[in-house]
Design a protein around this nucleic acid. Structure first.
Lengths: 244, 244
DNA sequence: ATGATGTTGTGAAGCAGCTCACACGCACCG
DNA sequence: CGGTGCGTGTGAGCTGCTTCACAACATCAT
């Protein structure tokens, strides 16, 4: 386990504040008070530095993880060094549920993409808990369905669309993801990260973004992209290739 | 609904024989007898001709479907005519569970890839049934996890691998899928179909397959591919690109 | 300041895979 | 039997994207 022991904070001091995030999460919000109390006993907070590995592809799936602050990168990498980002998990979201629920190995790597606070819920205590709470199982079904829709979308885009289409699609999905946040149109990702999400070279991505920025569809900042005009992007993502 | 009324067979005559398939399915096999009896009342059998549409992307997800005989193609298509096959569903398997479970629109098209017999389970009766059977919910969680692993694999392959890698991966996954069947190494798909699964042109696929067939790794038949040597393909699928 | 490190921007050259344009064989059917 | 499809096989050219090789700039620790 990459979450080393010395990083674990004493649970009691954060029970009220940090667990509030889990309490508010769609998965757990309908739980009654004492069930949640029981759950809280299995939760271990941890703090991670940027770049720290949380788990790797092939590891046994021993824990479900919730992000309190920072973002976590879910990715896979090929032996020849290329890597692909499957998802970015932000504050208030959870990940790692697949391996926990089916007991198989992890399908991807999880890495702290910035300094992070996370909550770790151990599988051994958690699985029986889910079984004892049928409503919770239904919530997980919904979560898994949402994930499946997300990855199906990705397959669709990657197979059917060319560069402009994929990039537009990625930008749209990213703006929708945290439309909860205040400034929803600013996406805090580097062009390198986007290129890995989309599966094309950083240079190509840059050129396309630059072309769009001259049309004022997007504005490029350092480490971020601001979407100014959503409609033309949706146009490009929906219908294939008219480009440039 | 594309399943037209005149194709529906009188339920009683098939109760014993055809429903046996569902009874044997991992999802339903642990159900006790009278629960299954109750479920059986919601099942409508249907027969489809090759090419018939079962549902289309965007439709409301009103039913869960099981394949009794034949194969069903799950695919998506872009406005410009290209299309991608996400999955092929064979006898004894079920599909369409995502839209049924989360109540959203269908994410892909389903088409009869050969003449088919199917069983249609209506959402309205089925959802409460799942809620009343916590064990069944856990089974669906496992199914969804398996699907998620399948599509994640697809994303991984499509983004990270070149043509030989993707093709090898597709062949391996197809042989594993129906290793239950007798002659597991013979895959009954056309090269056109494989090209749509893999997201590359039919011609490119043909050339690669032909190269492998001269090495006796595969044998090409009319409308089918026989995998002779699995190991070199696994080699290519695992490590990227040495090719040819 | 002064590097060190990471992000962005850009052009030239190369190539993997696509498109197009065929020919051939197999299978089904009137 | 001789069509009429549909699946397969193959080459020539085109192109979108990658790779490579940089330069400029932001950010941060020292």
């Amino acid at each position: 386990m990459a979450v080393s022991q010395d990083k674990i904070i004493e649970p009691r001091q954060v029970t009220g504040s940090k667990f509030a995030m889990l309490r508010a999460h769609p998965i757990f919000c309908d739980l009654d008070a004492d069930a949640f109390e029981q759950l809280a006993r299995y939760i271990k907070p941890a703090v991670l530095k940027r770049g720290a590995s949380i788990f790797s592809k092939g590891d046994p799936g021993n824990s479900l993880i919730a992000v309190v602050s920072g973002t976590v990168k879910i990715s896979i990498s090929s032996p020849d060094g290329r890597s692909a980002i499957l998802n970015l998990i932000g504050p208030g979201e959870i990940f790692g549920e697949v391996a926990v629920l089916d007991g198989q190995a992890r399908t991807a790597d999880a890495t702290a993409n910035s300094n992070c606070e996370i909550l770790v819920i151990d599988r051994r205590e958690f699985l029986p808990f889910v079984r004892s709470q049928p409503a919770l199982a239904m919530k997980f079904i919904e979560l898994l369905c949402a994930r499946l829709r997300w990855t199906s979308d990705q397959v669709e885009q990657v197979i059917l669309q060319d560069l402009p289409g994929r990039l537009a699609g990625a930008l749209i999905r990213l703006t929708e993801r945290h439309k909860a946040a205040k400034d929803s149109r600013t996406i805090a990702v580097t062009q390198q990260e986007i290129s890995e999400m989309v599966g094309m070279s950083r240079e190509s991505i840059n050129k396309q973004l630059r072309a769009w920025s001259t049309r004022n569809w997007v504005r490029l900042e350092h480490g971020a992209i601001v979407v100014l005009e959503l409609e033309p992007l949706q146009e490009i993502a929906g219908t294939a290739a008219q480009d440039d």
